[in-house]
Design a protein around this nucleic acid. Structure first.
Lengths: 258, 258
DNA sequence: ATTATATTATTGTATGATTTATTCTTGGGA
DNA sequence: TCCCAAGAATAAATCATACAATAATATAAT
């Protein structure tokens, strides 16, 4: 889904409760429904979004499951504090991105990647199966073939990182794919539309290094290679972000379905 | 909620959709609804749990929000692959624990803690406010005062770790409280009922060390102190787990509300 | 002033009808 | 025989309405 000026254009017909959950979720992110406040009652929300009670309540249950809100009889539906939000949830991240990201948020994002992805590489280097390695190789090949196609490149990049996560064998690490997706989505949007030839070669060299280390079953080498890769990616994005003085940015979120 | 022989006794009257979500979620964890399979249609599930379609569908939306299932018109509701599950979700972790944990799972759990909590300590040492430090101090005091009360001790322990997460300022780190809660819940259940006096002093010494480092704003020291603390906790639990040859274990999950 | 009871607003649950989307089937052509 | 298109079947998605449960608030009784 593509965002322009912070207003969403529904790309396809999505289910009603999905749209409502998206709408309320985004409003919470933007502070339109402040933290700690009570949301409007069912009746009002039904009218606001033009849906039935069923669809509305399903949307609320979706948000409650992600830790955004909590409903209690008679007292109403309260917007919970941020530390109840599940930041590893793909939707919450997407809504964050759609709101526009600031340097602080990017810092947090890369702090996590910088910590977890090297771990994933290290364990993947130990536990990878031949099939998993093959998936990485395929994704890497796709990256090589997408020098000109930035969207395709980003998609292949995400697939590469996810293949590593999967090979780590740790289900917790496998759950952070959405975080990486969010980071790549910002890179896609922020960095210069025509990436230089040198930069492409440098990025590919780093990714190839990670792959080689995992292929050769060298945990610490794989870990370090990934650490430097992420560090440089973070620097690129944050510099670019500082250059663009926009508060809100056009965001394109990627999903595996794309 | 307490588990005995894998059968749940509902401790209090909970909402219908909550019970259904819990029931289906647990069944998925246990493999009773296998991954990739289509679960029974609305009508059958309604009868199975004795609830209306409304309650059932809200439960399904809750599970869908956590990445466990996906519903498509005509095709049915499919149990998604594990890497779609959000392992940082408190409910999913709880259901995992209720099912009983194995050494592998404990390993994954501590792998994550071992990586993220030192980071949290390091950033907390840099960015903590006086109020946040005070929260840590209070929790630490509570731990000192609960040598005999194991449940109270575990609760205070969790509060201490969560105070650190909060002080880190990183919302992603603040979301992993449930992971720590899960780890502590297993420790509570597995380790010997009467912990020795020496062990208590050792654990307190380590926690005090983490606190001191954060108080003195020494990031690397705080990070290392936490790393060794977790390492030893992991060793204790896994050894104890290996001793107890039970496949399923009585689990007591803690929440902030307790 | 305190306790007990009634009120009432808001979420929670139930039910049946209707709509929508997708698979499966069937029929017609090439 | 094979392929494509039109239609039927089916299960989820949505709607509309009614009723129940709960807890905050107000009111009355002690």
């Amino acid at each position: 889904m593509v965002l322009v000026n912070g207003v969403q254009r529904p790309s396809r017909t999505r289910s009603a409760h999905d749209l409502v959950a998206h709408g309320i979720g985004q409003s919470i992110m933007q502070g339109r429904f402040p933290i700690g406040s009570i949301l409007p009652g069912d009746a009002e929300l039904m009218e606001l979004f033009g849906v039935s009670r069923t669809a509305l309540r399903e949307a609320l249950k979706t948000l409650a499951a992600k830790g955004l809100i909590e409903s209690k009889t008679k007292v109403g539906t309260k917007v919970l504090d941020r530390n109840n939000w599940n930041m590893f949830d793909a939707d919450i991240l997407e809504w964050h991105l759609e709101m526009g990201v600031d340097a602080r948020f990017l810092g947090w994002l890369f702090e996590i990647r910088q910590t977890l992805e090297p771990l994933a590489c290290a364990t993947a280097a130990q536990r990878r199966t031949p099939e998993q390695l093959e998936r990485m190789r395929k994704a890497l090949q796709a990256m090589y073939g997408c020098e000109s196609n930035r969207q395709g490149f980003t998609k292949a990049d995400l697939a590469f990182h996810q293949a590593i996560l999967e090979a780590s064998g740790n289900p917790f690490l496998q759950s952070i794919g959405s975080v990486i997706g969010a980071a790549l989505a910002t890179s896609f949007t922020i960095s210069s539309p025509v990436s230089s030839d040198d930069r492409f070669r440098e990025v590919m060299r780093q990714h190839q290094g990670v792959f080689d280390a995992i292929e050769q079953r060298k945990p610490s080498l794989a870990s370090e290679a990934m650490a430097t890769l992420i560090l440089q990616a973070a620097e690129r994005v944050q510099i670019k972000h500082a250059e663009s003085s926009l508060a809100k940015i056009q965001i394109h979120a990627f999903s595996e379905a794309d």
